[in-house]
């Protein structure tokens, strides 16, 4: 086990899979000569050359569609969105083409491709650059959505995604690129659709994913001092979602707080709360609470922005209410 940065785990995943399969290529804005806006493709141009590490002009719809067409023909593209906030420029391609073509072609085609890139708020880059869109894309049958929180999964989920025969969005997070965590030695894959129990506990379940995993773990130190033993689940995969792991935990702890960076209205936590209230109704000893981003565009000022995404104080407040 070595500790590496999340961005290096992303690069290692791409590098290993490109070495393994000549059909895999990477295209995106600044991925080649610039080494990636967030340095996730550092060194890959030198290693694989310009035919496979391709700088695109700023044309999200164009290069997303190019990747879908190439995947229909049998290649296995990786498209990097500098941030998923820009993926909305390519929304038609992702939603009307990538997601639907297998179905509309009656199963004649598959679309094995990965859309990956940065997401999330917290960096004072304003409302247009701070979206956490995993809930939006997860509503479309045909797409899969994964959100790695740690370096091990940044690598393992991306490798699985590249080998998967479906269009998959791998949604990373700017706040995590520089964070180091342990990565297994040698070849491994993180299965898509399998949650990870970060900590076992008895008093309540906290279901979270992405950057919020780190915030929950930070809050957990306070909870521990308060004598509260939380079971913490990192969903890792939003679509498909590992319902058995979530339900089993709630049936054990009888309490649930959902924490994630999507918006409160129709967000990932809304979906978890709805499914748990149906499947675990007789087991719940308290209402399910949600800690999410707030119902407002992302403000610029850090004094405001810090309150807009889940933070330690809001998590602890929700936990206290649920275990009271």
């Amino acid at each position: 086990m070595a500790k590496i940065a999340y961005r290096d785990a992303v690069r290692d995943a791409m590098s290993e899979e490109m070495t393994r399969d000549s059909r895999v290529f990477l295209i995106g804005e600044e991925v080649a000569q610039y080494n990636g806006a967030y340095k996730c493709s550092k060194g890959l141009l030198d290693k694989f050359g310009p035919d496979r590490i391709i700088d695109s002009p700023i044309s999200e719809s164009g290069f997303a569609g190019l990747c879908i067409g190439a995947a229909m023909y049998g290649l296995r593209p990786i498209a990097e969105f500098m941030t998923f906030s820009f993926s909305f420029v390519a929304f038609d391609q992702i939603v009307n083409n990538a997601a639907q073509i297998r179905y509309m072609s009656g199963g004649q085609l598959k679309v094995p491709l990965v859309f990956r890139g940065n997401s999330g708020g917290g960096h004072q880059i304003g409302a247009t650059h701070s979206h956490a869109p995993e809930n939006i894309y997860a509503t479309f049958p045909g797409l899969k959505v994964v959100v790695p929180a740690f370096a091990a999964d940044a690598k393992g989920l991306l490798k699985s995604a590249i080998r998967d025969d479906n269009p998959i969005l791998v949604i990373e997070n700017e706040a995590l690129y520089g964070r180091e965590s342990e990565v297994p030695d040698g070849e491994y894959l993180t299965p898509i659709g399998k949650a990870n129990i970060l900590q076992e506990g008895t008093d309540l379940t906290i279901v979270t994913h992405g950057r919020s995993c780190w915030t929950v773990l930070e809050a957990n130190q306070e909870l521990h001092k308060m004598g509260i033993h939380a079971e913490i689940i990192d969903l890792r995969s939003i679509k498909p979602l590992d319902w058995p792991t979530v339900f089993a935990s709630v049936r054990k702890t009888h309490r649930l707080v959902c924490v994630d960076e999507t918006k409160p209205f129709c967000g990932v936590s809304s979906q978890v709360a709805a499914e748990v209230s149906r499947a675990c109704f007789d087991h719940l000893d308290a209402p399910v609470l949600r800690v999410t981003s707030v119902e407002a565009p992302m403000p610029f000022s850090s004094a405001l922005e810090d309150e807009c995404i889940p933070n330690v104080a809001r998590i602890i407040e929700a936990v206290k209410e649920v275990v009271a």
Binding site: G65, G69, M72, D92, N96, N97
Partner: peptide, 19 residues
């Protein structure tokens, strides 16, 4: 195909040719 959104297939054709 056979695509329903006007102009959407122009990027797909690009991708087929790219491949």
């Amino acid at each position: 195909g056979g695509h329903g959104i006007v102009g959407g297939q122009t990027a797909l054709g690009l991708g087929l040719a790219f491949a």
